[in-house]
Design a protein around this nucleic acid. Structure first.
Lengths: 236, 236
DNA sequence: TTGCATGAAATTGTATTCAATATTTCCATC
DNA sequence: GATGGAAATATTGAATACAATTTCATGCAA
């Protein structure tokens, strides 16, 4: 697959190029413009961004660390192709962590925090009503951002980093196993969670969050597709 | 500071050198043979392990990702020197995650799992009764391993990775802020947690785990030490 | 002595080169 | 035409070379 449609970073005047390239590639993966399994050749990425293989390797290593890229020795780096089992672990991890985030956030639920979440929610809904692939991508990304904003409100950089990784991997999983394509049914869920947060109902907010994650996972088709191509061929 | 006392990896036939070096350095940091703030010069590490700077950079990047090393552009890499605030976040993260691990583990608490934990516990106690700095280090490491074994029993590689990072960072924090040196008062805590796990009492196990983490954190002196050296000098 | 400027040395950032491994192509053979 | 293997090509792994930046020391003037 060609990765030429990844827009190279343009006007970064002196900052860390590796970080900028990482962010660009990461966005492309999370936005599903780079589909799982796509090979990320060092020279291809390098020429695309006008850097040497050295910095590309650093970028790919970063992405490998957060599970968005898989590297095979002497074969190169590929956009991760998570197995159903790995997909389950992503959501199991979220079920484990996100209720804890609710607890942490609800303690310091300032009006400002609520405002920030409400503002984001209206953005989500706006994208939802727009048409076109571009709006769809924006909607999906925005949907994940809700969870990231929530995590940031917990005031814990480590947890924020973990959630960053989990949300990104979720996107990948949905890209692979999402059945409806309209798996972003979460806006109403998000609104309900926010309501519970604002009324200080931690118990309910946690409950809603768990259900929300269940919903997302339930929309996936995680049945293993074992050698199906061969069987299919024989069935002909 | 000199890092020459880090034993280089010896008999790695062909496997990934970078990984082996990372493990060695990681052990040295977690074992507190490399104290926070120590500079990890690329050439120094490289000559020590007989590799080029290229692979050293990969190693340092790995360690930076899990927060054990801080890199400053054009200045190099240093063993992390977590602030009191970062220290608090480490333990807040553990309070957030580890009760969830208890939940996950208790569901599939096989006799084999219990046996594994019991065996580890007796090892912890053995180290506790030995004398000498070597045994002390082994005791501390073993104490962290209890949590890692528990995490591995949850059957979730992502959570396991997160806990790996958190336990390692905890060691760093204890090295910096631990007041008694004998902060490994956890063996009895561990035993109690295991008891609760074996009797299937999730509620109690979570409770004990939280208390345990509180104990560890309570043994730290997280007051900010602002310019104290100067004041002391003046007080003379 | 202090402050500052200058320059040398050291260290990191990046590019390039060489070696090792994997992939593809091509051709002989069945 | 299919198959197997060897050469050719391409790609990654690692080391080295060069550029950019920081650090440190020296010297000089206030």
């Amino acid at each position: 697959m060609n990765i030429a449609h990844v827009t190279p970073v343009s006007g970064n005047i002196h900052e860390d190029r590796a970080q900028a390239i990482r962010d660009t590639l990461r966005d492309a993966i999370v936005d599903r413009r780079l589909t799982p399994g796509t090979k990320l050749s060092e020279i291809e990425v390098g020429t695309l961004f006008n850097v040497s293989r050295t910095v590309v390797r650093a970028v790919l290593q970063m992405l490998a660390f957060e599970g968005l890229v898989c590297t095979e020795r002497n074969r190169g780096a590929f956009v991760s192709n998570p197995t159903p089992e790995e997909a389950r672990q992503v959501f199991a991890s979220r079920r484990l962590i996100e209720p804890g985030i609710i607890n942490a956030v609800i303690e310091f639920m300032t009006p400002d925090a609520a405002r920030k979440l409400r503002a984001h929610l209206s953005e989500e809904i706006r994208y939802q009503h727009e048409r076109g692939a571009r709006a769809r991508r924006a909607e999906i990304k925005s949907s994940g951002d809700f969870h990231l904003i929530l995590a940031s409100l917990a005031g814990n950089a480590i947890i924020e980093k973990f959630m960053d990784e989990l949300v990104a991997r979720s996107s990948l999983v949905i890209a692979l196993y999402g059945r409806s394509g309209i798996s972003s049914c979460g806006h109403s869920d998000h609104a309900a969670i926010l309501d519970a947060l604002e009324t200080g109902n931690a118990e309910k907010a946690r409950e809603l969050m768990l259900h929300h994650i269940d919903h997302i996972e339930a929309d996936l088709d995680l049945r293993v597709k074992e050698g199906f191509a061969l069987k299919d061929a024989l069935a002909l």
